[in-house]
Design a binder for these strands. Structure first.
Lengths: 226, 226
DNA sequence: CCGTTAACTTAACGGTGTTAAGTCGATTGA
DNA sequence: TCAATCGACTTAACACCGTTAAGTTAACGG
């Protein structure tokens, strides 16, 4: 029995070591930098030994990702706890922690959120060349016509772009149609429906028309603000 | 000279054929499904012939991506044109076209925006397991305390999550610090600064406190839809 | 002591991006 | 008209990749 424990512990050790090595490699060099052979070399076993603990490379990566989301969640939870329940600061703290975690571990975060290597394309390769400039002009026009509040148009564009792009990315990352999580009654299912459902929030804000009209903007805490 | 033209045209033909084959393969099977050998087979040349036109696989993909963004931009421009200048409908149309294009060409779009294969992870693997549920609770609490308007909490969570995630993805996709495009005076530079700058927009909406207070919500067009 | 099983190993297969060297026809200069 | 050049390829090969098959070796239960 002592022997069994030892061997079991050893097995756990090796499995853990494989996971650790895989995580480090992912953080250092991304998914492309993770090969079964390099992981095995770091651990000190042969490449095929990994197949004793994991079915294939995908499962290995999946396990690392799962572990990563766990830490991500813990990080956010801790950041939240520092603010009073029911406050907007608390909601904002979630977003801040989200960003902070991602920026501090961004090579690793890329893997968590399914991104490829940096792929050095400038902003000009993005919808730019037709997209960014067009949206910006539409925003400037809307501001001039009074259909939209007047602020820095680049900030407005970034806000609208982020919201749309984020919705899309999340929808694509998990095939949202198959997630019971998101099937609440009042909530539309397709990304396009959600986009439309965002309308009132985008127009009137998270405080809502009544609060804004009453000039009741809280002096200290606000959802996205400093 | 006739011969030169012919050979030049032929060269262009082959180059174009390679690009077309690469685009089709990317749209069908994503980045993993694109190998130099399969592209070459479709075109009817040997794999190494590609290296006469492109430095390596990365450049080939880059070229396809660039072409893709061009079409993406054209698509958006066309959708915009259908709405009157200066209207919120026009701004919203950009977002709608953005989503429509991405959803209709999503295998291809994944490559444009640097995403990996579907990687079937459920929503539970996302910040869930600590994140989604926590944010949702914070939102529910804020609604109950009156710090936030009361709507479907899942919709609110999706809105906040999309905005934050999108900002992050765009920031990571192009290293925004090095983009002069985004160095406008009033605009903060880091993703975290932008997140904070979003504050007033998130709280009060794109219409602004004055318009909302005046009950001046336009009857027909609004930024995020109906 | 024997059979089984866990925990590996080595060898190999088919695939990948990429390089080196060679072929071959058309173009060009003398 | 002939030799040289050059563009547009080809074949062969290299190193690496994920993965499978078969074998080894030590510990264990009966």
């Amino acid at each position: 029995m002592a022997g069994k424990e030892i061997s079991a512990n050893r097995a756990v050790d090796v499995e853990g070591a494989i996971l650790d090595a895989a995580r480090d490699l992912l953080a250092e060099k991304g998914l492309q930098g993770l090969s079964m052979r390099t992981v095995a070399e770091r651990v000190g076993v042969s490449a095929t030994a990994i197949y004793h603990y994991f079915e294939n490379k995908e499962e290995l990566v999946q396990r690392v990702v799962r572990q990563g989301f766990q830490r991500f969640g813990d990080y956010i939870e801790q950041a939240m706890g520092a603010h009073p329940q029911g406050s907007l600061e608390r909601v904002r703290a979630v977003g801040e922690a989200y960003l902070r975690f991602a920026l501090e571990n961004h090579a690793y975060f890329r893997v968590l959120f399914n991104l490829q290597r940096p792929h050095a394309h400038n902003i000009e390769d993005l919808p730019e060349g037709g997209g960014y400039g067009l949206l910006r002009q539409a925003v400037v026009d809307a501001m001039e016509s009074g259909a939209m509040r007047t602020i820095d148009p680049d900030l407005m564009v970034m806000y609208l772009w982020s919201l749309t792009h984020g919705l899309l990315m999340i929808s694509l990352a998990c095939q949202i149609e198959h997630c019971p999580e998101f099937q609440s009654d009042t909530m539309a299912r397709t990304p396009m429906d959600m986009f439309h459902a965002f309308g009132p929030l985008v127009r009137e804000g998270v405080l809502g028309p009544a609060a804004v009209a009453a000039g009741a903007a809280p002096p200290t805490g606000a959802a996205g603000g400093e």
